[in-house]
């Protein structure tokens, strides 16, 4: 797939179009409007309006009296005043005050857009739930917000393109293998899951499917928690990542498991009440690991240590050998 088609491809996968739709429907007026709005009093002159518009390059201003919105005055009104040579006239003679069309800060941009379409007006004062003026919105504000969002989508689509399409696509050799090592501290629950999360990110980064990364992460997480709970001086997690197979080894140097078969029974646990309070020690760890792995072996000797080896096969679709869609 060519780079220029990144966004199109992204849209094709049901992403961008629905995202734009969501954006217009869910983005609130308050996120798009100009919040620091200039205002004038109804007694100000049209000349003052002219100065304000020119100085700040704006096209209209809400008119406020006693902190209440009483009207809106725009560049069109100024043109009328100029035609009549009435620049010294107070604003209230030219402003729109009846049937004033406003937007609400919390309403979706879509609603504001509809009102612009139906009425043909150029700008709307924005009111909060109590009817207080909090900003002003123009069609231009909406366009800019949408273009900004489109830009974000495009960047996201480009980033997707740069990610490898298949597992290990980015690395080529006769016999590729990636070895990651993590030291696990006993009792350090705060960092529990750190190693598993890192392995998961690494797998995704080199192009593993989310399903594979998830399987590996869940099994490794259970093994990591086991080391934190049980191992005398913590342990070691080794991840050997190859294009067709991933092997994770979790090992420690004691205390060792007295009855491995019993430990593998669902619901069997020797965890302390403190550990259970943290949500672990339900005796489902090894059951969980077995479910996620293609092969699992557990070796242990009391006084020596334990070694849990988990193997995950990379399915052929993920290696990219059988499919060639681009």
């Amino acid at each position: 797939m060519k780079r220029e088609f990144a966004l199109l491809g992204f849209m094709g996968s049901g992403g961008a179009l629905s995202k734009i739709h969501e954006l217009i429907r869910e983005m609130q007026v308050s996120r798009v409007m100009t919040a620091n709005v200039f205002t004038l009093s109804p007694d100000a002159t049209m000349k003052e309006l002219e100065d304000l518009l020119r100085e700040h390059h704006i096209s209209g201003v809400p008119v406020i009296e006693n902190q209440e919105l009483v009207g809106i005055v725009s560049i069109e009104d100024l043109i009328h005043a100029l035609e009549n040579q009435q620049l010294d006239t107070p604003i209230h003679e030219y402003m729109t005050s009846k049937g004033l069309i406003t937007a609400h800060a919390q309403e979706p941009v879509m609603e504001a857009l509809r009102r612009f379409e139906h009425t043909g007006i150029g700008r709307m004062p924005v009111l909060d739930a109590r009817g207080k003026l909090v900003g002003i919105i123009t069609r231009g504000d909406i366009t800019i917000a949408l273009l900004g969002a489109l830009q974000e989508l495009y960047t996201e689509a480009e980033a997707m393109q740069q990610r490898p399409q298949h597992f290990f696509d980015a690395l080529e050799s006769e016999n590729t293998s990636l070895l990651l090592r993590y030291r696990i501290e006993k009792g350090n629950f705060a960092r529990g899951g750190d190693a598993s999360a890192k392995i998961k990110r690494a797998l995704l980064r080199i192009g593993a499917s989310p399903q594979l990364a998830r399987r590996v992460a869940i099994a490794t997480y259970e093994a990591e928690i086991n080391l934190i709970i049980h191992a005398n001086d913590g342990g070691l997690i080794l991840a050997d990542i190859q294009p067709t197979e991933i092997t994770i080894v979790a090992q420690d140097s004691g205390p060792g498991i007295a009855d491995v078969d019993l430990a593998r029974q669902p619901g069997y646990s020797t965890a302390t009440p403190e550990v259970r309070e943290m949500g672990f020690g339900a005796g489902m760890g090894l059951t969980n690991i077995e479910r996620c792995t293609d092969r699992m072996s557990l070796w242990s000797a009391v006084g020596v240590g334990s070694r849990l080896q988990m193997t995950f096969k990379v399915s052929p679709e993920e290696t990219g050998e059988t499919s060639d869609d681009d």
């Binding site: 943290m278 339900a282 489902m284 969980n288």
Partner: peptide, 23 residues
């Protein structure tokens, strides 16, 4: 029970729990 959660969860699943630690 976090192992239960790991056993049962599917992507796009809401996790409802009373366990408020980082785990």
């Amino acid at each position: 029970l976090m192992s239960d959660v790991l056993l049962f969860t599917k992507p796009s699943m809401l996790l409802v729990t009373g366990l408020t630690n980082p785990q």
